[in-house]
Every structure is written in structure tokens, then in C-alpha cells.
Nucleic acid binder design. Structure first.
Length: 888
RNA sequence: GCGAAAGUGGCGGAACUGGUAGACGCGCUGGCCUUAGGAGCCAGUGGGGCAACCCGUAAGAGUUCGAGUCUCUUCUUUCGCACCA
């Protein structure tokens, strides 16, 4: 064994060993439990970032741990390779997205390999491979046959100068990112997947997902958003009938039909047919509707708009009283939710209250609290006004509580065929059409004679040409004759290919299934999915808590209903890792944009007064401190994992990631912290080196028995009996550490405390200075436990140290040991003594001591007696083995 | 705006089931050592106080023998909001 820790050499050797032995190639084999450990696959942006390193280290720790637990582990990796950044790179550099993407994949794959992740590379896939996306197309066609995929119009961001559809992130302050033109909303035909057909099941099944964080389940439940309410139709009044040229009714959905008698207006969205009709007759209204059509389609933008509206001058009739009610157009009503119209009940809804006050509309009170605290709402809004209560001023429906009022009013509406109770979902169908080049082509052909014709299965995949270079103005597929021109599969006449591609969320909605049968060329999946799925542990960023995970749950069910799977939930356990943060430093010029400065170039100085100043080392002048933020290119605060690996080695990078915070929380980058982990590994190396060079190491079969053997104790005797108190104490700590680490990884899924525990053990080994064969054996055992416990986190150095400690085989093939109960046994325990809940002393008592014994021991303590006084205690609380609280 | 979560020393964090607040690490202070290193070793390090002790987990209230942990209110930060992935 070398005296110096040389990470580069150690890591190369360990990786060569795993590669040449095919250690991580997963095999299906009966009789052994399986463990499918999956980290969310990366977008091949060019280089790995720290978020990836964190994500994949967590996965690798669990995969290696479970492998040592004797499970058949599958840990695959792939590439989420379609998407916008490749097109942006093409616009900037003129490189075709295909080439850019493939080069990025090659580079990032080398980075992943250098980090020593135990991945089965034989199953690697990229979503831009025709072998993969042909099954997207195949599955899409099956969904289309079943009515799961269907066509309707949808709203997109339109850049009028570039004549192109923009993604939300390409809209900055309502303007196109390249042209600066005001963005418009535009309706175009698109394909949708009927995820709402699964809303009930997706919501109900959340309850059974007990391996998922509660907060993710809550977020999904809120996203699906089941609400029970009532449809209400407001028949058109004469003026509206005249304007629209016919009979009809305005339909709204409400969860508060008990307040139906408090309606003082109805509001429709700017896209609603009634708004269009009214706008045709009024210039002011037309202007307002046009204004609502400008700006982005993002809900967050819409929700923060100033709530405004205009009357249409048209009326509808109240379904029960027949009173005329004016129709307004309001910018806060969403066409995509419910019916695109709402009834306004200002007295009992805060938004309607503000709207009515602003526009001088009536605010009739129709509900009072059960306690009769008030009979009429005031001029200032109070949250109580929206609470359920007793109906008033509601004709024959007055005096009812919420449930009764809803039942009676809904029944009355139903009788008149003007409404009925209904469940409404917030969840909308999933629009998958993208007017973009770098994605999976939608396999349809447009024929003048036959209309829209699906591409026959035998002709799949519809290949995406890989030599096009987008320029930002529209979809290059629509300009490529080679792609566009084709023969109609039905009539054979010349036809045109569909140029829309699929949302990249489609690609990622089933890749975890494909890993189980990535070499199957006759079908998307085969029987092997039944062996590997569900994923036992899925790991990824919290930012995917809703969309990706919900789409995957839906897609899996859709495939189940096609008979391709016997599985509903794809992910048994979910770990959502926190973001990686770093400091932000910048300078704000008098005019222009902030200049962000990389934290690696900044030095923090503390002046005499204790104030901390950040200095840019390039010019030795101060910079502004912008706090902490997620690592990103735009804030120039990223740290390149590559430089970490080169400087300290993969093990140090992995160890820091696992030590700096628990996996679900944000992780703050710290160069000093990384150095600390590097120091720890060097100390560990040195401790093993000193131990093995002090005397020859015998070959050991495993742990523990060595102590009894080396001390010459008779077989069957407790190994501790022949040990010194200090050696027995070291053994106890060794096995206690093993117990803690096992629980932390297996049960709690936290690694920072597991690492802290092994650090404590190494500190104890360093302090332990007894000599002799028993002492040597106890020390040897402690070092073996440290190396075993750390091996999932820092596998390279542990691989090497395991050999140094006298083992022939590879550490990764070792099984995870059980703590030795005999080593853990303790005769006395320390309990803390409180007086009135305040800590006043601590005493040693026998392990199973009863309350009287503990109390006597406690009162022998001088400090306890002083606070407890002479009078008998009013109450004594005793928690055996832990604490005694004397209340006086 | 709506939905979700998190606030503990100078810093990252620990305290798992309501029971010793600050494990472990970083930083800092003092000392030692040396083939002077971005090395190693030892000691100290929440605040106040000579001490006995007192105070202390974003702020404020409450439940309890006992609250960082449970409840309510407020503040701050982070994530998501359907075409970034």
C-alpha cells in the first residue's frame, strides 16, 4: 500500500476493475430480489452540473448499498435528448442539433464514468435515437385509435415578426426573446392526450403512494384539483339572442351554488364566443378583447394582472328568478378552465367583491354565519364572508345550511334542465403538439383526398432529418421538401407530412419502462418489465414534482390499458433532491445589465469592524453580494464538476455532496467544505496505512471473529470478556456506528449523518492507543467497519483500502454486515435528571433500573438536591434509560 | 395571484417517537511539530456572567411535567403554475 493517497490512481484502478468484471451489468434472475434504482435522466446540455452529480451520487449510494444487501440491482442511464436548447445552440452556432446533442452525450458520458457510478451502460438510450422514438410514434397511434389522443385547438404564444410559436421561456416581459415584438395569443389545432379521463384514478392512487414525499402527493392532488359543484345555465335574454342569432344559454360551473341568489353579474373570458359576438358591436370592447389577447399565456402572468373588465351590454336571465343579469368580459377568467365563464357573487367571493366595487355593481348578501354575527356584508372584505353559512334573501331557499341549500337549488335547476351537480377538475388535457424541429415527429400524413392519415406501423419510424439547422423563424421541417413530400398511405397520391413534433415530456413519460427491455426491437416493452418494474427508488429534482411525474403515472396507465403492462404506478419510492446553491456576486453598472462574477474569483474579507466585504480578485475591488441562488449560467455561479474531480478526485466530490446536507434539502456549495472532505479521506488513508504497516495483516474471512481469535478467548465466549475497557468501548462504538449507518441509508435515506457517524468512529480509532493483539484486532475491526460503511459513498478509495486490510475479493461483492449484539451490550446507562423540566444533573444507573432506583440515584446528586428541595416532589416523570423529571 | 415546503452558532448542518439544543464538518483563536504544506497534531469555540447560574432554535401567542419538534398568527426564503427540462 502506498503511503500517499493518490485519488487519480486509486479511482482509475477501481473503475478498471468494475469495468473488466462487468460488475454493474444487470441480469434478470429468479430467486433473487430485484432493486431498480433510477435517477432522472439528464438533458445533454454539454457538461454535467452539480445538480446531476448530487442526483446520481444519491442513486449510486443506494444502488451499491442494495447490491451489498444481496439484491439484483438495475441502475441504468440515458439521455433526454430532444428539446429547445439544441435548437438555441443551432441558432447561435449554426451546428445541427443532432451533431451538437451527440457530441454532448459523448462528453457527459465520460464525465459520468469518471465519477464512478455503477451504471449498466449496456442499456443506455437516447430519446433522439430512431430506435427509441419509433415507439413514441407507435404508442401515439395506439392512443389515437383509442381516443386517448385527439385534436382540438389550443392557445400558443405567437411572435408576429419571426412568424413563429414561442415557448413560455422565450417570452420575456410579454415580448419575443429575439425580436422584441409584443407576443400575441393565437389559436391553432393541436393534439391532446386525454389525461383527464384518468383524473379520478390518478388522484385516488396518490393515497397508496406511501413511498412518496407527502408534499409531492399534496402538490399533485392540488394540481388535479377535484371540486364538487354544479353547472348552472343562464338562458340568453332577448338582446343576447338577437346578437347571437338564436336560443342558448351561458354555462358556468360553481362550487357555491348556495349563493345563486347573490349573482349580480356574470363574466366571460376574452376568448369566449359571447365576448367575440359583443366585441363585433363595440369598438371599446373589441379593443379590450384585443388587449387581453396580447401578452403571455402563462398562468402566473395572468393571475397577477390587474383584474379588469368591461360590460358587453348583453344580458342573460337568472335560471330561477328570471331576472336579467349583465354579461361582462373579464381578463381574469380563463377559457381553459371550466366553461370559460363564471357567475359573480360579490358578497361571498373576494375576487368578485373587488370586481363589483371597482365597477359599481350590486353586492347582495345571501349567506349569513350560523351564529348570526352579521346579516349583511360590509364595505371592507372579510374572509368570513366566503365561509359556509345559512342562506338568506334567497326566496324559498332561504334558511338552509350549505349542504341543504346546494341540494335543493341543484334539484330545482335540474328540474328546469338548467343545471346539475357535477365534479370539475382543475387538471386539463395534455397538449403534446410542438411547432418545432428537434423532437419526435408526429406520425401523420395530410392528404388532399383522404384527410389526416396515420403512418402505417410498418413504415415507422418517421425519421427526423438530422441535417437541418433552425434559424429561429418557424419550423425547418415545414421548409424541407425532403421531409414534407410523401405518398398518402391510403390512396398513394402525393401528400404532405405533419410537421409538428411531440412535447419532450412524452419522451420522458416511459423511458423507465424501456430500460427493462432496451434491446427489444419488436415492441416498446416485453415481459422483462414485469421483472424490473416498478422502479423501487426514483430520484430527481423537486422541480419535477408535478408535470413529469404526473405524465409518467398517466402514460403508464395508458399502456396498461393497451395490455402492454400489468402496472399502474411506475415509481414505488420517490426521493426529491434539493437544489444546489452557490453565492451570487455582481456589479450593477449605472446603465445596463448586471455583471455577474463567478464566486471562485471572489474573496471574502472581514474588516476590523467585523463587516464582510466581497472582493473580486481580478481587480481587487469590492462587488455586491446577491445572496444564495441555484447554480445557473445566467447568474455565473456554477461550479464545474470536472474541475472538482481533477483537483480532489471523484470520491471527494461525491463525499461532499452527500455530507453537506440531507438529500431533500438545498445544498450550499462550499469550496472549504470540499477541502474538509478531502482531508477526511486523506486521514482515513493514513489511518489504514499506519495500521497495516505496523504489523503484517492476516487474511480475514470477514468481520468480528478476529477479536475473539486474536485474544485467544474460548469459543462461544463473549468476545468482550477478554478485552480491556477501552477496547470493549471501541468495539461498542464500531458496531453502534454500523447500526446507525445501516439505519440512515436503509430506513431514513440520509447520508450526512451516516458520514458523520463514521467520522466519529475514525476520531475514536485515532484516539485509541492501546497495543497488543486484542487491541490490534479491535482497531482492525473498526477500520473495516469504517471502510464498509463509507463504501457506497466513496467506492474507489474503499475498494483499495479493503484490499489493504487483507481481503482478496472486491468490496462491492462483500455482503453488508449485521452489528454484533454482544458488542453493543451495555451494563449501565446514563440518564438525565431534570427538575421542573430543566436539566440539573446526570446519573449512571443499571440498564433496567426502576423508577425508585433512578430517583434515589438522582437525589444523591448534589445539584439535583439543591433544586429539588426537601419537600416531597409533586410529580415524577420517568422515561427508562433516558430521563427522570422531578416536578416540585 | 394560487399551490407546496423551509427558517437552529460566524457558516453547512445534528437532535429519528414531545425528553441532554448545537453531533459531524467548515471557519476562527491559541499552542506544538516539521524534509515550510493550500500539510499534520493538540486544545478551545452559541451569547452573558468572577462564579453559582441566566438567556438562547425567524417573531408573537398557546398546549404540556417538559416544545427546535405539536396548534394558531405574522414575517422571510425557496420550488411549481401546464411550450425550459
Amino acid at each position: 500500500m502506498q503511503e500517499r493517497y493518490d485519488p487519480a490512481a486509486v479511482e482509475r484502478a477501481a473503475q478498471d476493475y468494475w469495468d473488466s468484471h462487468g460488475t454493474f451489468a444487470a441480469r434478470e434472475s429468479a430467486g433473487r430480489g430485484k432493486y431498480y434504482c433510477l435517477s432522472m435522466f439528464p438533458y445533454p446540455s454539454g457538461r454535467l452540473h452539480m445538480g446531476h452529480v448530487r442526483n446520481y451520487t444519491i442513486g449510486d449510494v443506494l444502488a451499491r448499498f442494495m447490491r451489498m444487501q444481496g439484491l439484483n440491482v438495475l441502475q441504468p442511464m440515458g439521455w433526454d435528448a430532444f428539446g429547445l436548447p439544441a435548437e438555441n445552440a443551432a441558432i447561435a452556432n449554426g451546428v445541427p442539433p443532432a451533431r451538437w446533442t451527440r457530441e454532448n452525450i459523448a462528453y457527459m458520458k465520460r464525465q459520468l464514468q469518471a465519477l464512478g457510478f455503477g451504471l449498466d451502460w449496456s442499456r443506455e438510450l437516447a430519446t433522439c435515437d430512431p430506435d427509441y422514438y419509433r415507439w413514441n410514434q407507435w404508442l401515439f397511434l395506439r392512443m389515437r385509435e383509442r381516443g386517448i389522443a385527439y385534436k382540438k385547438t389550443g392557445v400558443v404564444n405567437w411572435d408576429p415578426i419571426d412568424q413563429t410559436v414561442l415557448a413560455n421561456e422565450q417570452v420575456i416581459d410579454g415580448r419575443g426573446w429575439r425580436t422584441g415584438a409584443l407576443v400575441e395569443k393565437r389559436e391553432i389545432p393541436m393534439y391532446y392526450l386525454r389525461i383527464t379521463a384518468y383524473a379520478e384514478e390518478l388522484l385516488g392512487a396518490l393515497e397508496g403512494l406511501d413511498g412518496w414525499p407527502e408534499r409531492v402527493r399534496t402538490m399533485q392532488a392540488n394540481w388535479i384539483g377535484r371540486s364538487e359543484g354544479c353547472d348552472v345555465s343562464f338562458p340568453y335574454a332577448d338582446d343576447t339572442r338577437a346578437a347571437l342569432g338564436g336560443e342558448g344559454a351561458l354555462k358556468v360551473f360553481t362550487t357555491r351554488v348556495d349563493t345563486l341568489f347573490g349573482v349580480s353579474f356574470v363574466a366571460v373570458s376574452a376568448e369566449h364566443p359571447l365576448a367575440t359576438a359583443a366585441a363585433a358591436r363595440s369598438a371599446a370592447l373589441a379593443e379590450f378583447v384585443a388587449e387581453c389577447r396580447r401578452g403571455s399565456t402563462m398562468e402566473a402572468d395572468v393571475a397577477t394582472l390587474e383584474k379588469r373588465g368591461l360590460p358587453t351590454g348583453l344580458h342573460v336571465s337568472h335560471p330561477l328568478t328570471g331576472e336579467p343579469i349583465e354579461v361582462w368580459v373579464a381578463n381574469y377568467v380563463l377559457m381553459s378552465y371550466g366553461e370559460g365563464a363564471v357567475m359573480g357573487v360579490p358578497a361571498h367571493d373576494e375576487r368578485d367583491f373587488e370586481f363589483a366595487q371597482r365597477n359599481g355593481l350590486a353586492i347582495p348578501t345571501v349567506v349569513r354565519p350560523a351564529g348570526a354575527a352579521w346579516q349583511q356584508v360590509g364595505a371592507e372584505w372579510l374572509p368570513e364572508y366566503a365561509a359556509h353559512g345559512i342562506t338568506i334573501n334567497s326566496g324559498e331557499f332561504s334558511g338552509l345550511d350549505f349542504d341543504a341549500a346546494v341540494d335543493k337549488i341543484a334539484a330545482a335547476l335540474e328540474q328546469r334542465k338548467l343545471g346539475a351537480k357535477r365534479v370539475q377538475w382543475r387538471l386539463r388535457d395534455w397538449g403534446i403538439s410542438r411547432q418545432r424541429y428537434w423532437g419526435c415527429p408526429i406520425p401523420l400524413v395530410h392528404c388532399a383526398a383522404c384527410g389526416e392519415v396515420p403512418v402505417p406501423d410498418a413504415d415507422l419510424p418517421v425519421r427526423l432529418p438530422e441535417d437541418l439547422v433552425p434559424d429561429g423563424s418557424g419550423n425547418p421541417l415545414a421548409k424541407s421538401a425532403a421531409f414534407l413530400d410523401c405518398a398518402c398511405p391510403k390512396c398513394g397520391k402525393s401528400a404532405r407530412r405533419e410537421t409538428d413534433t411531440m412535447d419532450t415530456f412524452v419522451d420522458s413519460s416511459w423511458y423507465f419502462l424501456r430500460f427493462a427491455s432496451s434491446d427489444q426491437h419488436a415492441a416498446p416493452v416485453d415481459e422483462r418489465v414485469q421483472y424490473w418494474l416498478p422502479v423501487d427508488q426514483y430520484i430527481g429534482g423537486i422541480e419535477h414534482a408535478i408535470l413529469h411525474l404526473l405524465y409518467s403515472r398517466f402514460w403508464t396507465r395508458a399502456m396498461r390499458d393497451m395490455g402492454l403492462l400489468r402496472l399502474a404506478e411506475p415509481f414505488s419510492k420517490l426521493l426529491t433532491q434539493g437544489m444546489v446553491l452557490n453565492h451570487i456576486y455582481y456589479r450593477q453598472p449605472a446603465a445596463g445589465r448586471r455583471q455577474f462574477i463567478n464566486p471562485a474569483e471572489v474573496e471574502l474579507r472581514t474588516d476590523a469592524a467585523g463587516a464582510r466585504t466581497a472582493i473580486w480578485m481580478n481587480d481587487n475591488a469590492p462587488v455586491e453580494q446577491g445572496g444564495l441562488g441555484t447554480m445557473s449560467k445566467s447568474k455565473n455561479n456554477g461550479v464545474d464538476p470536472q474541475s472538482m474531480v481533477e483537483k480532489y478526485g471523484a470520491d471527494t466530490a461525491r463525499l461532499f455532496m452527500m455530507f453537506a446536507s440531507p438529500p431533500e434539502q438545498t445544498l450550499e456549495w462550499s469550496e472549504e467544505g470540499v477541502q474538509g472532505q478531502y482531508r477526511f479521506l486523506r486521514r482515513l488513508w493514513k489511518a489504514v496505512h499506519e495500521h497495516v504497516s505496523a504489523a503484517p495483516v492476516e487474511r480475514h474471512q470477514g468481520l468480528i471473529k478476529i477479536v475473539a481469535g486474536a485474544a485467544g478467548a474460548p469459543a462461544g465466549a463473549s468476545p468482550n470478556a477478554s478485552l480491556s475497557a477501552a477496547a470493549a468501548q471501541l468495539r461498542r462504538q464500531s458496531h453502534h456506528t454500523l447500526e446507525r449507518v445501516t439505519g440512515d441509508i436503509a430506513r431514513r435515506r440520509v447520508f450526512n449523518t451516516a458520514i458523520a457517524a463514521t467520522m466519529e468512529l475514525l476520531n475514536a480509532v485515532s484516539r485509541y492507543d492501546e497495543a497488543g493483539s486484542a487491541a490490534r484486532a479491535a482497531r482492525h475491526e473498526a477500520l473495516e467497519i469504517i471502510v464498509l460503511c463509507l463504501s457506497p459513498m466513496v467506492p474507489h478509495i474503499c475498494h483499495e483500502l479493503w484490499h489493504a486490510l487483507g481481503h482478496e475479493g472486491a468490496l462491492i461483492d462483500e455482503s453488508w454486515p449485521q452489528p454484533d449484539a454482544a458488542a453493543l451490550k451495555q451494563d449501565t446507562v446514563e440518564i438525565i435528571v431534570q427538575v421542573n423540566g430543566k436539566l440539573r444533573g446526570r446519573v449512571q444507573v443499571a440498564s433496567g433500573a426502576d423508577q425508585a432506583t433512578a430517583q434515589a440515584a438522582a437525589l444523591a446528586d448534589e445539584s439535583v438536591r439543591r433544586f429539588a428541595g426537601e419537600a416531597p416532589p409533586r410529580r415524577v416523570v420517568y422515561v427508562p434509560g433516558k430521563l427522570l423529571n422531578i416536578v416540585v
